[in-house]
Nucleic acid binder design. Sequence first.
DNA 1: CCCCCCCC
Length: 602
Amino acid sequence: MSHKLSEGSLEVIMHGGLYDKPIMQVIGSKKIQGSGVNERFRLMVSDGKHTHTYAMLATQLNDKLISGELSDYSIVQIDRFVTSLVKNPGKAEKRVMIILDITIIVPGNQIGKTIGNPTSWSEETAQAPPASTMQPEQKLKATPTTSAPRPANAPSLDSSLLSTQMTHPIISLSPYQNKWVIKARVMSKSGIRTWSNAKGEGKLFSMDLCDDSGEIRATAFKNECDKFYDMIQVDKVYYISRCQLKTANKQFTSLKNDYEMTFTPDTVVAECMEDASCVPQVKYEFIPINEIADKGPDTLLDVIGVCKMASDVQELTARSTGKLLKKREVTLVDATGAICLTLWGNSAETFDGNAHPVVAAKGVRVTEFNGSKSLSCLASSMVRHNPDLPRAHQLRGWYDNGGADLDVVNISARAGAGGYSGSGEWITFSEAEGRQLGSGNKGDYFTSLGVLTFTFADNAVYKACPQDQCNKKLLDQENGLFRCEKCNREYPNYKYRLLLGAHVSDPSGDQRVTAFNEAAETILGRHAADIGRLFEYDKPAYAQMFDDVKFNTYVFKFRTKMEVYNDEARLKTVVMSAQPVDYKDANSRLIKSIKALSGVDV
DNA sequence: CCCCCCCC
């Protein structure tokens, strides 16, 4: 069986010409750099006439090689590639080919040998390119100049002649290529930041760019920072060339790229003035909210949800730096769950959750506190309101047509400082009593399905000590200052906290319980700061809030302990958490207990 | 060449 290779295609390609989907044979491969995500491979390919050792595999194709799918002697069709000249100090310019897409036509084990007698191709032995060969660089140089500032020898950026063929996909950029032009949309742009450390000082700003192939971060330092900061605008599309590429530090970015760019004095940026609708908007990889529970702390991810509630802006002092911080906690919901997202600084102040906007967040970090997960924005995170995305419209429809009233599991609901260590079994109050829960000296934990039958609204919210660790109720000195007995200090400020007394009933009886701050927030569906504000300024709304939650059913986690008060032993039961009912789970528990009671398979 | 991103 004969296999036709595209004889002579390498010659064309290595002169910078175009050749549509050449068929080649892989003769060998070699790992050239790094490990893990930075691993890169070089292939020796043959077109039957020549072999060439500078065919780089785009990193997203590494798996094909590692898995063995792309074995030696495979016959492949190179569906998409770019070439570029690489200059190494003291050496001649060398053209490399970067393979972006590849189809394996015949696996290597079916061939088992090199086809034909190809000879090694090199610039020195190469003949002049065939007359028909197009050379992108030459073509670019021939274009009329534009108004964009550029060095005399830089490629022209006349956009009318920069067809997509002439721009390079972002995914193809690597340190092995220096002649490229990308056509990219600015997804986000940082403010100007200054630094001063042992190595010196300076300023910078960075931006996240995308095209239909991928995304990349670019940073402009010092002179370039001044030169480009005003020009670069979010959502606009630019032609960009002549940046330096280096390995990205994955710790600081969630962008899907092994590399990042640095602007240099040679960098050219020109706004794309014609229709750029082909350049995509921000790329998200949203994950359902309930799946965030399985992500480890510090994971960077993208999320979208409807803002169910948002706290007021809270001010606090960073323990490490002493800096004054502003934050706002936003609860996002989708059909799978709810999660808290913390916004900081300016984005916290400007956030408006009143109309329950759909919020899309890119590159937010998973944090864990007291055993539950929530999300926190970083400086590099991107948060958008009501973005024009199919998923956003879908969520809007879901929320406005009943989703708002659904109880979903809030994965940020705090288990409380004591931590919950119950069996997961649901028991009734009388069963808890029968097991003598609370009679030990450590307290016992149990879970119940119960109905909130009464709430004591009167003293549910109090002004607490603003110190981080201290939640002591403050004494109003009636002079604008508040005294904390625990800290032995007076403060002009305070934070609101909740201490909610309530009654919970289940089929076996009724229990007086206490819910502290976090658990009370879940029960009342609002943050303590908001509740404090209602208490001060809107008493009817405050009262209404307690009416609204009456007779709601929750899955309660309790800690119970017998305490002696005025010579009388009383069971003190604290709500560790109150979760909305997951009815699928509740029903399967019910079916199980019916089976156990009746012996009948239902 | 930055890489801080905070709190309960």
